[in-house]
Every structure is written in C-alpha cells, then in structure tokens.
Amino acid sequence: MGHRITTRTRASSIAGIIAVALIAVGLILPAFASRSLIQDLFFILTMLTLAQLWNLIAGFGGMVSVGQQAFVGIGAYAMFAGVILWGWDPVPAILLGGVAAFLLAIPMAFFAFRLAGAYFAIGTWVIAEVTRLVVAQWKTLGGGTGTSLPREATADIIGVETIARLFGLRDAAARDVLAYWLALALAVATLATIYALLRSRTGLALAAVRDNDNAARSVGVDAARVKWLVFLAAATMTGLVGALIYVQTARISPDAAFSVTNWTAYVIFIAVIGGIGRLEGPILGVLVFWGLQTAFADYGSWYLLALGLLAIATMLFAPRGLWGLIHDRTGIALFPVQRRLIGAKDG
C-alpha cells in the first residue's frame, strides 16, 4: 500500500550510537576515574533507575505512587536478611531484594488498585509506612535502630578481590567499583526494558489505560492486567535497586531504607523536572538534581525549599518538564515511542 510505520527518528539513531558509546565509556571508567566520581555516578545511576521506574508506573501508567520507598526498603532488608541470617554473599543477595519487593507488591496492588487518583497515592504511602513499622520490629536485623553488614560479609564479596588487583585499589574502593558496575547494568537494563515495553503492543495498551481506562476496556484491553504487570515489574526492579544501594552503604535502618523523602520525593522531583512520561525526562532530571545537590547540599533546609519551589515552578510553567520544553521547541526525541505512519496516500 506504499506506506510504512516507524518509531525511528534521526535523533534516535544518533542517540542509539551515543548510548552504546556512553555504556562502553561507563564500563571502563573505573580504570582511570577517582573514587568520588565513581560514588557520584553510583548515586546518579541508582536515582536514575528509581526515577525511570516511577516514571513507568506514574508517567506511562497513570498510577501516581508515593509508596515506592516500600520496595527500596523491603529490597534492602531482604538483602540484609540474606547476608546476616543465611550467610549469603551480598551480591547474589540483591536478588532476594527483587523477590521480596515483588511479593510485597502483590498485596499492595491488591489494595491500592481499588483506589484512584489522590487516594491511590495516599494508599501506597500508608502501605509503605505500615511496612516500615513492621520491619522496625525485626529484632535480628536491628529493629528500629538498624544494623550494619558484618565485616566478614563485606570483606569477601564476589569479584571485589579481582577488581582490587586489576585496578590496584584497596578493598573499599573496589567495592564501590563493583557496586557502580551493577548500578550501570541495572540502569541500562531498566531503560532498555522500559523502552522495549513501550514499543511493544503492551505499550499501546498502557497508554490507552492511562488516557482512558473505560475506553481501553471497550476496545478489548485488559486494563487490570496491564496495570498489574507494570506495577509488579517496577516494584521488583525498585527492590533490586534498593538492595544494591544498601550493599554499597553497608548500613541500614528502617527510617533511612523506607525514607519517603529519599526514595520517592526526590525521585518524583527528578521525573517532574526532567519531564514525566518521557524516557529522556529522568535522565535530564537526575543531572539537574545531582547538580543542585552538589552545589547547595550544605544549605540544609533551604536546599529542600529550593527543590520544592523549582518543582512547583516547573509544574506551573513547564508541566511536561525540561525535556518537554526541548521537545516542543526542537521536536527531538532520543527514545521515540510514537508509531508514525509515513507515506500513506489519501483517496
């Protein structure tokens, strides 16, 4: 019929090449980067992954959760349980974090999916708080005050010795390199998975459900199934990220691991500033967030006030975020998902 369908743009082809180059640079970076840069990048990559996952359920799925810290926390605690109670190596124990978050997400979705809009947001928050309170009762993992990974567990994490020898680093720095590589792998895997999902048939269903779930059902989309799928997948990945963050920190407490500020408010800030509902948004957002934090973190609560004002200003004047502004001006999409029909003739 002389037409074709494509999601590709020239910018996306270039972005693909740049992405591959960046990943390659990211992989070999520990050979010459300073330890503090590696630590900063670890922070950026983990926050980016959390923001992409929140963006998936809220921006693409319309489920505005304020309870993602539940999955970070339960993931981190499951990893700690694996190490302290069962003597696992911390790195494979990260997988326990994913499993625990998945299991927690099932009852959470069961209750929260009965709520809509603001009620959904508050419901997820309440469930996260309840989870924090329950975990704080877990005496063998430090109860309310928390605990640290035992020295013998952190001393011989798989691969650390090899990295230390390879780059001539001390063990602590080698652990950071390992955590950084895992963070890079998780960030790339998350981005690639979400991108593939959005370009699949399920991506269309997700957008349809977000825009109008009544109409989505009337064209045969199983709205409930799509929501469950995305929510559980995002929770599982969030649990993995949480576990990884606490492998690097090596110290945990319920207040920190289930912190709504660190794992949800900052994450929402990143997605809002960068642009909700676009894969490019969190990437831009996390860089802005990191820059602000580096520059103003010493100003204490003024810093938080500034973040809040910036988020409000963005919502008022650029509701689709910084990337939304760029996209509107230039039409550039690095990770396009829109299926464009090209060359179809009328008549």
Binding site: L204, A205, A207, A208, R210, V219, G220, Q338
Partner: peptide, 19 residues
C-alpha cells in the same frame, strides 16, 4: 473518549491489536 496521548493512528492500532 479518545486516547488523547496517542495519535489517531495509534488509537486505531491499539483498538485493532487488542480488539
């Protein structure tokens, strides 16, 4: 009740693929 964030073509694609 269109899917407002999708194009006309994508509205039809979603309906056809799932319907």
């Amino acid at each position: 009740q269109p899917f407002e964030g999708l194009t006309s073509f994508e509205n039809l694609l979603a309906a056809a693929a799932y319907g």
